[in-house]
């Protein structure tokens, strides 16, 4: 069972109280962007075995969207953080560096 701590309510939420929102840190390409960028924004998703950054919604709780860094292979959770950010905060990156030295994901490392 996956348990994530919602950074808005501060409570540990069980997987059944959350809804998954796919990959985090997507950059939106809207009207006026090139076809490649728009296609990438709509369809291109990473599907890593290992470290992944995801969006989750505290659906049965406070209703807020947040981000989670976790391992898709072991289900280890490195941390959760608020969604009002363009990249994972340093404290999350430090935890990942301790546990998965030399990690990289998209253009973060």
């Amino acid at each position: 069972m996956l348990v994530l701590n919602c950074p808005y309510c501060g409570l540990d939420k069980d997987e059944t109280e959350l809804s998954a929102g796919g990959e985090a840190h997507l950059k939106r390409f809207g009207p006026g962007s090139s076809d490649e960028d728009f296609e990438g924004y709509l369809f291109e998703r990473t599907n890593p075995k290992g470290l992944h950054f995801e969006r989750w919604r505290c659906a049965f709780g406070c209703g807020k969207w947040f981000h989670a860094a976790r391992c898709t292979a072991t289900l280890e959770v490195f941390g959760t953080y608020k969604a009002q950010t363009l990249e994972p905060p340093k404290v999350i990156k430090d935890v990942i560096t301790t546990k998965r030295p030399g990690w990289s994901w998209r253009n973060f490392s």
Binding site: C9, L11, T16, E17, F60, G61, C62
Partner: peptide, 10 residues
């Protein structure tokens, strides 16, 4: 005060 689910409902 905890917002949660009771069996299948919010």
């Amino acid at each position: 005060l905890v917002r949660t689910r009771f069996a299948q409902v919010a």
